[in-house]
Amino acid sequence: MKQNFTVRQGALDGVEAFLSVARYRSFRRAAAELGVTPSAISQAVRVLEERIGAALFTRTTRSVGLTEAGERFLSRAKPAFEELVAAGEVARGLGQRPAGLLRLAVPRAIVPLLLEPLIASFCKAYPEVEVEIAASKELVDLAAEGFDAGIRLGQFVDADMVAVPMTPPFRLAVVGSPVYLAEHSRPERPGDLRQHACLRWRRSNGALALWSFNDNGQAIEIAVSGPLIASDFPTMLGAAIEGLGLAQLPEPLAADGLKAGKLIHVLEAYAPVMPGVFLCYPGRRQIMPKLRAFIDHVKSRTTGDGKVPIQVDAKRAGARKKG
């Protein structure tokens, strides 16, 4: 069905019409190829010639030929237009199937604990997707830095982000080794921590994190001191197992150590509940298939409650960071 052909004012306006006429040496056949009227093709070429400032075709009632300017324009415009079409096909392919580069901004501590198993299985399931992990303690601007998604603790997910839960909410547990607690009195209240060696965590902004507690529904924070400052939880976990002091960690991270008797949970009545870990990405009308595939893969790897648990062997975590 024929349709009106409206030419916008731009550098590429009329180029496709010109190339089709040059290919067939016919305005009528070019019009049939592009699904428009011959007069529309003629008008598009005429506007292109006016914009360039030279006649591109020699027209008679019986034939259509290229002028010298037309030949030169064809030699440059044809490969350039073909590259443009090919670029569109590449982009269209990325919009139709999981392929291309998937960039994830991830906190360092999450990589060995939560992401490694997911990435291994995802790469096997989607071989056309390349995964780039930018492991950092900084909270980067995902859109500005060109990331498809990030993984963050719930309290650090921006309001304008779409968030997919990767873990259930978890408690922050204060733990210590049996050896340490045999040599020091067990703390009964958060204030008792001032008499203890506490392993501290330095936040991405450079500040030392205060220890958080829930005292009968009231949130409190306490500044602690101790022999070690780390920027990741696995290092603190390994140091706590070695008896260097008490550490406040996500409870799932300490679960294996607690189960094996390498760690003891103290101040349980004051443990605050954190929102959990989330995969987050800028809200968009259309999610690229590579990111949609990763989101679906995360969901498919979850437990029955719809979330992925953080579990790691405590000895392995400590050894990983020491190595």
Rank of each mutant, 00 (worst) to 15 (best):
D215C: 13
E130A: 13
P227K: 06
R320M: 08
G245L: 11
V15N: 03
K78L: 11
R189T: 09
A319D: 12
S42Y: 15
T61I: 12
N205S: 06
R194K: 12
K259T: 15
F170S: 00
T61E: 14
L253W: 03
S231E: 10
G10H: 08
E82L: 07
S75N: 14
F147H: 04
F5D: 04
V140D: 02
A260H: 10
I41Q: 06
S177L: 05
T61G: 10
A40G: 07
V129G: 12
R25N: 07
R189C: 15
T302G: 05
Y126N: 10
V45M: 04
E242L: 03
L153P: 07
F156G: 06
A69P: 00
L104W: 00
G238W: 00
L19M: 03
E33I: 15
A255F: 02
I222Q: 00
I287M: 12
K78D: 09
P117L: 09
A317G: 09
T6I: 15
T58F: 07
A207G: 12
V308T: 08
S26D: 11
V298F: 06
G93C: 03
K299G: 08
S63G: 09
D313H: 09
D158W: 06
Q96P: 04
R285F: 15
I287A: 15
A159N: 12
S63H: 10
L279N: 02
P187H: 02
L208A: 12
V7D: 02
A219V: 10
R28A: 14
K137F: 09
D313G: 14
E132M: 08
A30T: 00
G95C: 10
S212N: 12
G53T: 04
L244Y: 14
Q96S: 10
F294L: 11
P252A: 06
A40P: 04
G257V: 02
F233K: 04
Q43R: 09
P168H: 09
A197R: 03
V36F: 06
L113C: 09
D148F: 06
E145W: 13
D192K: 05
S39T: 14
A31T: 09
A255S: 07
L104Q: 00
F122Y: 07
R23K: 15
K315E: 15
S300M: 07
E145L: 14
Q9R: 15
V129R: 01
S300C: 10
W211E: 02
G146C: 00
F81K: 01
A105W: 04
A207Q: 13
L181N: 08
A247V: 03
L172M: 13
V162N: 02
F233H: 11
R301I: 14
R46E: 13
G65E: 11
M161Q: 05
N214P: 03
T302N: 04
L139F: 12
L114V: 02
R171A: 02
L56S: 01
T302S: 08
M161N: 07
E82W: 04
S20P: 10
M288Q: 08
